[in-house]
Structures are given as C-alpha cells and as structure tokens.
Design a protein around this nucleic acid. Structure first.
Lengths: 292, 292
DNA sequence: TCTTATTAATACTGAAAAGGTATTATTTGC
DNA sequence: GCAAATAATACCTTTTCAGTATTAATAAGA
C-alpha cells in the first residue's frame, strides 16, 4: 500500500468516475485504473463495483475512504510539524539563569521571544553560573544567563551592563536623609560589617565585589552569608550589616533599606547569554536572532 | 512523501546505522541512503546528522519518528478494518421484523449471529411485512422477518412453521378446567365475538386465519381490532371476545387467558427470513450462512 | 431496434525510478 | 600508521509507471 494509491483512490471515490478523477490527478485514465487495481490487489479487497458504465463504492471502499482521508490529513500535519521543528518554530528551549538575572535582564527577552515564537516551550531553571556552564557542556540546557567572564569555549553575548550600589538599613547614619542619594565612599561603607552571598554560590559576583573593595584598601568583614539576594536584603534591613549589590537588585524595593551610589565608580558587572556553538537545537538560532 | 520512505526512515532512526537498517529492510545500503535523501528533499528538512562514522537524529527527525510510528500504525489498522468490512466481520446489518417473530423465532438467530460476529452492529426495526418488503427493495434494510408467502422477487428461507391456537378468557366456558387442553372446535369458537389485528397491519396473518375460519363455515364477527398482539390478549382477557393467534404467541403467558388447540387442524403459518439477492452488503452472506 | 456517446479495461511502448555492485572517502580504534 | 567500519557516489540493470491507441460494453436517443 502506498500514499499515491490512496490519493488515486480518494479521487475516484469522490468523483465515482475514472476519467474525471484522472483529470484531477493530472494523469490519464489507464494508469489510474492500474493504481486502483494495484491497491485492491494489495488489500485483497474489492473497493469499487464497476460496470462499464457506473462506478460505486463497496462497503469496504467506504471504510477505506473515511480512513484514508484521516490518514492523509495526519500525514499533512506531520509534515508541517516536522518542518516547524526543523525551523525552530515549534520546540523546546531550556534556559538556565542566575536568580539576579530574573529581575531586569531576562523578562523582556523572554517576553519578546514568546511573542515571536509562541509554539516554543520555554523551560526555565534557576541555577548558579557554574551549574549552567556544566549543563551547557552536557547539552542539558540550551542557554545560560550569568555574569561574565566566561572561561569555557562557549559563545556568549553581553545583554546587560550595570554598576554596583550600596545597601544600608534605612535608619543607618550613612543613609542620610530620606531622599538623599549622594554617593557613599566605599571605604567608609566597608567599615561596617558586611553581608554577602557565599563565594561558592556566585564566585564571579563575589570576586568582582571583593576586587573592588580591596582596590579601595578595604577588607570587608563578612558577618553573615545568605544564598538568596532577597535574604541579603532582609539581613541588611535587620541591621546585621551593609552590602554591595548589582543595580538591578534595586528592583526589589523595601522601605527598611536604602540603595545608594558608591564612590569611587564601582566596576561594571556584565550579564551574558551563553550558549554552546555546537548545540544542534533549531530553536537556538531563533533566540539568538531576537538578541540580534 | 511516501510510505516506503517512511519505513526506510524508521529503520534508520531505530538502528542509527544505514547498513543494518538496510539489512532489516532486505535491501542494500546505497538505495536506502537514496531513499532517506529523497525524504529529506521532499520535506526540505535534515533528518539525520551524519558523519562518515555516526548517524544521529535531529530534532525534526525525532518529531518525524514519533509521527511516522503513529501513522504506520494507523495505516495497519485501516488496512485491517477494510479487510474486515469486506469480509463482513465488521459492519452493520439492518433487520426488519414483524413483532410476532420477536417471541420465538428471531432471538436465537440473533444470539447465534452475535456470538459468531460480535463486531457486526445489528439494527433491529419492528415493521409490518409490507413495510419490510418495501424497504428491502429500497435497500434500507438488509433482512426481513415476516410471514409467508412472499410475492416479490426476493430470496427467502422459512425459519419457523407453527400452528394457530385459540385464545379465550380463563373464565370462559370454552376454557374448560384449569388444566384442560382438549381441542376447541373452530365453529364453536367463532360463535363468540372475535378480536384481531386489522388486515391493513398484517394482511398475510389476517387472510390466513380468515381463510381457515371460512373453510369451517364460520364468518368471524370482529368486535374489536388492536394493532399489537399484546393488546389483543388484553382485550380477550377483558372479555371483549376470543381470538386465534400463532402458537408462538403463547410465550406471552397470562393467568387471565387460556391458549387451546383448535379443531380441525389449523393451517401452518410459515415465518421466513427474506432478503434481496442483489444486496451487496458483505455481512449478509455471513448471516445467511448461520441460517444454513 | 439500431446508433452513438460514454467509459472502464487492455495492449503496447518509451521513459523514469529504483535497486544492486563496485568503489570512494573518511573516521575510529588498535 | 594501518585496518575495519561506514556513508556517499558512480554506473548499470531491472522494474515500474505513465501515456497513446484500442477494445468492449453499456446506456440513452432516434
């Protein structure tokens, strides 16, 4: 049995006339007759009762007609679905990200991509940068979103650059007036005890802040560690200490803390989208395209 | 796109090796390679990433694999279903019958056929004999079950012969003792007023009984007509009159009526299965076969 | 009743497709 | 570095398939 035979059969079943069916199929009547004969031989079933004058479907023919319509329809859909998957319009994209990226960097990117490719299922995993690099190498995730620098042989593109800012309790003397926003000297800030994320959890962020602090001659005394940025802010609010955080964290607004600029100019922190150039996912190029 | 291409594709997708896939398909490797190339060209999609050494499915290939398995499965089922319909093992049979036949004649036939061909859907329609002959000619029903004789050019086979019996109220003098079963002379019975089904509803039954009665010199006085045998019995029980019914009606047992043999010997009433020899339904021969 | 138009099937021919053999190129493993 | 494995290619042969011409049979109209 063969798709071509089924198409021939459906045309004859529809017109109940070999000549007109052949015309519709852009062929002549004799080969069409042979196609039908071949189908009947393959099935071992008579599909049409034909006199020299009239053609009619048998019961088996009607059954085949219904089934063949469904089958060809399913074939069309399969063809289309396969094309879409190949083009990346339909599929899945697994994205790892550091939690900080979920504040300001990632949401607009995801929203734009979703809008352009609504048939792509986005799997989002909050991971540390190191975990992301590991899983990218294994092909477990398609994209990472983490802080520069990336050492591995992976492709990357900076999607955001931001400065650090100081965080102090609202009641702290350094906070100044309620609407004050004059810069705090770094050395003065770091006389206070310091709250931060453990280095193991976010080495690039940790090292970046520490290098800046030491360049100012300070040696931050870490009084407390917390794995989540939210928790760091909570500890600051509770008066456990002060902290230095990426500017995007200021999205997390609280009345009991103040974000203040730092002096001298703190270093830039780059957030990058990272991917494996060898990843065969057809969706990946489309995402990179929305990044430009 | 072609079924053969899909089968080739699935073999390669399963083995991820052109040589072994070709062996499974009972062909050599070069034409298999060309089949896959043809499929990829037809779809405009790369299905395998092949090095000289390794073959792997692309995302589109995996999608096609899943879909193709389903598709071929559906094709198999369609093929089987079509065969079954052609053989009559699967299908529908519409059967008309006179209500009387539903007492004793039809149930065992239907039960036997159902058991032998459980996939055949039996549509049962209670109809008069004339309606059945009309609908048989129109091809609206496949089988009739009615009283002989059948005049039309239809095939028929007698499936039951039975005598007529008298029905009288239990309290009627003719009923005799409770367990009496001596025959009632027809002429004596027909001195009573008579209850029967209208001739228009069942002409063969009506004529048969009347011919018998008149042969005995009686001229039955029909005091009441009823379209259903059940109703006739009810009228008899109510003392409206007596009746003569086919023996199979005695299946409808009631305490308030008595069935009694008639004297002299009443004529035989033949119930036949009737069909149109030109009916193309593949189920029909199977039913006739269970009839022997 | 005879004729004509319609139409499915068949015979034959040429072209296209498909499969097989031999070979090549490249990669992997020892 | 050599041998085994393996996908692709070239070339040839066989098979399949479509088209033309024809036949046979039936239904409708004169």
């Amino acid at each position: 049995m063969d798709i071509k035979q089924l198409r021939c059969f459906l045309a004859v079943a529809q017109h109940l006339n070999f000549g007109r069916a052949a015309a519709e199929l852009h062929m002549t009547q004799p080969p069409l007759t042979r196609q039908i004969q071949g189908l009947e031989r393959a099935l071992g079933v008579t599909l049409f009762t034909r006199t020299k004058r009239h053609v009619a479907l048998t019961a088996a023919g009607e059954t085949l007609q219904q089934g063949a319509i469904q089958l060809l329809d399913q074939l069309d859909r399969l063809q289309q679905r396969t094309s879409w998957v190949a083009e990346g319009k339909l599929g899945e994209l697994t994205i790892g990200f550091v939690s900080t990226a979920n504040q300001r960097v990632l949401p607009p990117l995801l929203q734009q991509f979703r809008q352009q490719h609504p048939q792509v299922n986005l799997q989002l995993l909050e991971l540390t940068g190191d975990e992301q690099i590991e899983l990218l190498a294994q092909g477990e995730i398609d994209l990472g979103c983490l802080f520069e620098p990336v050492s591995h042989p992976l492709q990357s593109k900076v999607v955001s650059r931001e400065r650090f800012v100081a965080v102090v309790p609202a009641a702290h003397p350094l906070a100044g007036g309620f609407d004050s926003d004059h810069a705090i000297p770094c050395r003065q800030l770091l006389k206070e005890s310091f709250v931060f994320i453990p280095r193991s959890r976010s080495p690039r962020l940790f090292d970046c802040v520490m290098a800046y602090a030491r360049a100012q001659g300070a040696n931050p005394k870490i009084s407390q560690e917390a794995r989540q940025m939210q928790t760091v802010l909570g500890l600051v609010a509770a008066g456990v200490g002060v902290s230095i955080v990426p500017e995007s964290v200021t999205q997390l607004r609280r009345d009991d803390i103040r974000y203040l600029p730092l002096q001298p100019e703190p270093p830039e922190l780059a957030t990058s989208i990272v991917w494996d150039a060898g990843n065969p996912s057809p969706v990946l190029p489309l995402f990179l395209q929305t990044l430009q």
